[in-house]
C-alpha cells in the first residue's frame, strides 16, 4: 500500500511543480502586457486565485536603491479592493477598473490560447 501512496505523492508533487511553473511563466508574460519592460525592471501581472490579481514591480532607482511594489486587487461582490504598499485598502474607481479589466482580459486570452491550443 505504501508504494501506491508514494507514487501518488510523487504525481502530486510533479503536478504542483508544473502548476507553479505555469503560474510563473504566465506572470512574466502578464508583465509584458503593459509594454516593453525597461532593463533592470522586473514586472509581473497575474491571477493568483479566483479572487485575487497581483501586479508586482521591482526596479533600481538612480541612486542604486532597489524598490519593490506589490499591488493586490481583491475582487469582492461589492467592488474591487486595492492593497498597495504602505497604503490602506480602498475600492478602485472606474478608470482603474477599466484598465484592470483590460489587462485581465488580455492575460486571460493569452492563458486560454496557450493552454487550450496545444494542450
Amino acid at each position: 500500500m505504501s508504494g501506491i501512496f508514494s507514487v501518488k505523492a510523487q504525481d502530486d508533487d510533479r503536478q504542483t511543480r508544473y502548476y507553479r511553473e505555469l503560474l510563473r511563466k504566465a506572470a512574466k508574460k502578464g508583465g509584458e502586457l503593459f509594454g516593453p519592460i525597461p532593463e533592470g525592471v522586473r514586472r509581473e501581472f497575474f491571477c493568483l486565485n479566483a479572487h485575487t490579481w497581483i501586479w508586482h514591480e521591482e526596479w533600481t532607482d538612480a541612486q542604486g536603491e532597489r524598490h519593490i511594489v506589490t499591488t493586490r486587487y481583491d475582487v469582492r461582490p461589492n467592488g474591487v479592493l486595492k492593497a498597495q504598499d504602505g497604503q490602506p485598502y480602498r475600492f478602485i474607481e472606474l478608470q482603474e477598473a477599466k484598465h484592470l479589466y483590460k489587462a485581465a482580459r488580455i492575460y486571460h486570452h493569452y492563458v486560454q490560447n496557450e493552454l487550450t491550443a496545444k494542450h
Binding site: I68, V69, T70, T71, Q84, E93, Q95, E96, A103
Partner: peptide, 30 residues
C-alpha cells in the same frame, strides 16, 4: 502604453492622480 518606466506609470492600471505607484517602500506593506 507608456515609454516611462513602469513604476512611474499611473495610467496603466492605476488611475492618474490616485495611486502613487512609485512609493519607495523596502518591504511590501501590502
Amino acid at each position: 502604453v507608456s515609454e516611462r518606466p513602469q513604476h512611474e506609470v499611473h495610467d496603466v492600471i492605476a488611475a492618474p492622480g490616485i495611486a502613487a505607484v512609485n512609493e519607495t517602500v523596502e518591504t511590501p506593506d501590502a
